[in-house]
Write a protein that binds this DNA or RNA. Structure first.
Length: 287
DNA sequence: CACTTGACCTGTCCGC
DNA sequence: TGCGGACAGGTCAAGT
């Protein structure tokens, strides 16, 4: 699902629902969805949830045992909390509109009050694993990540110097590279490039500084806007309540091929850049 | 080394 | 309606 705004929405939703709860049991329905769980589940079962953090697109659930549950949702992962009280599908007081587990459920975490956290993942790319506090700093995935774009330390100078390390790559590939900036994915790459009027295939070294400045501003603007809207609503993404966000209604190019550019009314087209489906206005975004 | 492409999986959609 | 192929919000390994 999930890029930075979706994972952030999920993080805040989970925070208010699971912090303080005690984990009673673990059911793993697909072995590869929870790495080393047979060895590590003892650090999970019986522990309390102390906090829910995020780094890039990775969720870090802090346990009272000095261990952490790492969750990466990749393309289709969902974490859905279902409270102990059920009112029936569609009831406004029911947290989840569907019935779980379903055939995409890979892991169930059961709390001692009877509530549950379901890890659903249609394509099985996502993963959960337990990492000890002292091993976090040597965890390769975290080590390599670039800066968080919504932190105030992320200045334009930092942005510029980091992307200029890849002068011959196209700008979209660089935005998607988590080692350069953390958290941007296919939706927000397309949206921010449209906002800055930059063609996604532009070589980084060929882009005017004024346009890069606009891109920097667009990235921050669009990520904040999406968080405000509760993330996107495409395909598999749902929040901690199993509900969709509304950002995609505000998207200006993403999945809007054959529709009009909101800026100049030219028909938006879909191309392929960096191996990904890419949406552009051919008039606003020229090479 | 810098950069690009393919593989990982399951499900859905589109054209014939 | 059935079938084949392309494609889906990410990341890593293998390729050029």
């Amino acid at each position: 699902m999930p890029e930075l705004p979706e994972v952030e929405t999920l993080r805040s939703g989970l925070s208010s629902r699971i912090i303080g709860k005690k984990i009673k049991d673990l059911i793993v329905l697909n072995d590869n969805s929870f790495l080393n769980y047979k060895k590590d589940s003892k650090h999970l079962i019986g522990s309390f949830i102390n906090g829910v953090d995020r780094r890039a697109k990775l969720l870090i659930i802090k346990l009272s045992t000095n261990y952490n549950l790492f969750v990466h949702l990749k393309m289709t992962g969902q974490l859905v909390f279902v409270g102990k009280k059920r009112f029936g599908a569609g009831h406004p007081n029911d947290s989840f509109v569907g019935r779980l587990p379903d055939k995409s459920t890979r892991v169930e975490i059961i709390f001692d009050d009877g509530s549950k956290l379901y890890f659903n993942d249609q394509r099985k790319f996502g993963w959960m694993r337990i990492i000890a506090d002292e091993d976090i700093k040597s965890f390769t995935f975290l080590n390599k990540l670039g800066p968080e774009p919504l932190e105030k330390e992320f200045t334009f100078d930092i942005f510029k110097s980091r992307i200029f390390k890849h002068p011959n790559a196209n700008i979209k590939a660089v935005l998607l590279n988590q080692e350069v900036i953390a958290g941007i994915g296919n939706i927000y790459a397309d949206e921010s490039l449209w906002g800055a009027k930059i063609h996604p295939s532009s070589k980084v070294g060929n882009i005017a500084i004024a346009k890069l400045k606009n891109l920097y501003k667009e990235i921050i603007y669009i990520l904040n806007l999406s968080i405000q809207k509760g993330g996107s609503s495409n395909r598999n993404y749902v929040n901690a309540d199993g509900k969709k966000g509304s950002f995609t209604e505000f998207a200006r190019v993403f999945r809007r091929e054959k529709m009009e550019c909101p800026r100049c009314s030219t028909i938006i087209i879909k191309i392929r850049v960096a191996g990904r489906g890419t949406h552009i206005c051919p008039k606003c975004q020229k090479l």
